[in-house]
Design a protein around this nucleic acid. Structure first.
Lengths: 263, 263
DNA sequence: GCAAAAGTGTTCTCCATACACCCATGG
DNA sequence: CCATGGGTGTATGGAGAACACTTTTGC
């Protein structure tokens, strides 16, 4: 890797989160078919590096920043090119720029994190070079990407507490139990169904669709939807101008190629 | 400004906050001499641009990122070069990269925010091209720097609520009233002295020095110090590896020059 | 009817707020 | 002694945790 000028190179990468649909099992039902019994978990798609440095290891999807493209647009584009996904939520995470984080060349990476709807996941690319990993079973990662993912997880957890972003991991409608499972998967602890229900209902972000989910083994639960008026409540910090581009994202041109080679 | 390659240029800038010492008035006393009566306010040092684009307007201190320098080191260095200050707290804020934010050239700015002790401020450079502005009386700013500062303010306010960073705006010792004034200045609202005291005392981060501040018109208040063991509590998000370099900062070589010309 | 999940009600504790009140000092 | 801020005590209200309880379905 030659270093042909005196500047650092700028890359954009994204940590993508989705809810485990417990193997690519049967379609139909509600959002991503969350098993009612055991807890769901977070999954992260990674791409295999096809070049040095880090050849063969797994890395975050991303790419070099084109001169004329906005940062968030580049994140959404590379994300879509590598995984075929369109994010329901996309926000800048952190910019990593230690001089030695990529061997041979100075690379500064602007890292984003994204959430995708569970029903989007079925559409996702998955082959030899793109694979989904469970949050707590990540492979050997290239560069500092293990640390990057760890940081993204921490941010997701703290953000869930004061924001209402869990819906970005679900489909259009969902049961109260499914919503609770999202929180449980993210926070990695059990929540009291009764208290969770009350908290959510009093938050004013939920709308009861009136419908009920049939086909369960027992009493059919109500189906909810997020109030589109209130939903884009991203964060209290969004008093400023930048920050999260909540809800439906760019999703540009769409070539099916997935490769890329950036820290 | 010629565009001699196909990359964006990388700059590092810093939003610096200090507490108003109400004009560069008399030295001595406690931390920065906060007037007991009226509320303190936040002040921000800005540098005048000496070149196009934005010639003559005020901007954040910063500079281009050298190939071999870490991001936070570059922030601390440029900060020190332009203002003569050493930050007590330094944390990455956000990376701004809209394609059109700087006319003529694509510039991506990694922006940091810093807090400096009030007794540091006396040491600060202040001349024709470096001046301190009150948070709510900012001048006409170059580039998107007005928005950047607004975002930094929002972050400072929300961060103060769950973190203990107020000490970075004070001197070595301080009274409970001074600490409260920091919070009041940052949050822009009055706080109940009684409840504030209890909250702080039960947080376990304060140490009573045993001394009292003489020379006040009335009952002499106790002087406190921050518990150095507990102080570096930066944030709950610091579960990851990057994030804030709390407390005493780098403060590198130190040339006295202040100029720079980056968005 | 029985198992299991949906959904409701009640209590308790913790913590932030409001505010009444005493303490110490300079003038 | 009195004005002023330092410092303490106490009541109230809302949010969350714990948990007993009723409801509704499939089998």
């Amino acid at each position: 890797m030659p270093q042909h000028d005196a500047h650092a190179r700028l890359a954009v990468s994204t940590v993508i989160f989705a809810l485990s649909p417990d193997d690519a099992g049967a379609a139909g039902g509600t959002a991503g078919d969350l098993a009612p019994g055991r807890p769901a978990s977070l999954r992260i798609p990674l791409v295999r590096r096809l070049r040095e440095p880090g050849l063969g290891r797994w890395a975050l999807p991303g790419g070099w920043l084109p001169v004329d493209e906005a940062l968030d647009a580049a994140a959404a584009r590379t994300l879509h090119e590598t995984t075929g996904l369109a994010p329901a939520y996309l926000e800048q995470l952190y910019t990593f720029g230690e001089p030695d984080r990529s061997p041979g060349e100075r690379v500064v990476s602007v890292v984003y994190w994204a959430l995708v709807h569970s029903d989007e996941v079925l559409r996702a690319v998955s082959d030899e070079n793109v694979r989904w990993f469970d949050e707590d079973a990540l492979p050997d990662l290239a560069f500092d990407h293990a640390a990057v993912i760890g940081y993204a997880l921490a941010r997701l957890r703290t953000k869930l507490e004061y924001s209402r972003i869990a819906h970005a991991l679900l489909g259009e409608t969902f049961t109260m139990a499914e919503l609770r499972q999202v929180h449980e998967a993210v926070l990695r602890r059990r929540l009291d169904p009764a208290n969770f229900r009350r908290t959510m209902e009093s938050s004013g972000t939920l709308v009861d669709t009136g419908e009920r989910l049939a086909g369960t083994r027992h009493r059919p639960p109500a189906l909810y939807r997020f109030d589109p008026a209130r939903t884009p409540v991203t964060s209290p910090t969004s008093a400023g101008p930048p920050h999260a581009a909540s809800v439906t994202a760019p999703a540009p041109p769409a070539t099916g190629t997935h490769s890329k080679d950036t820290p």
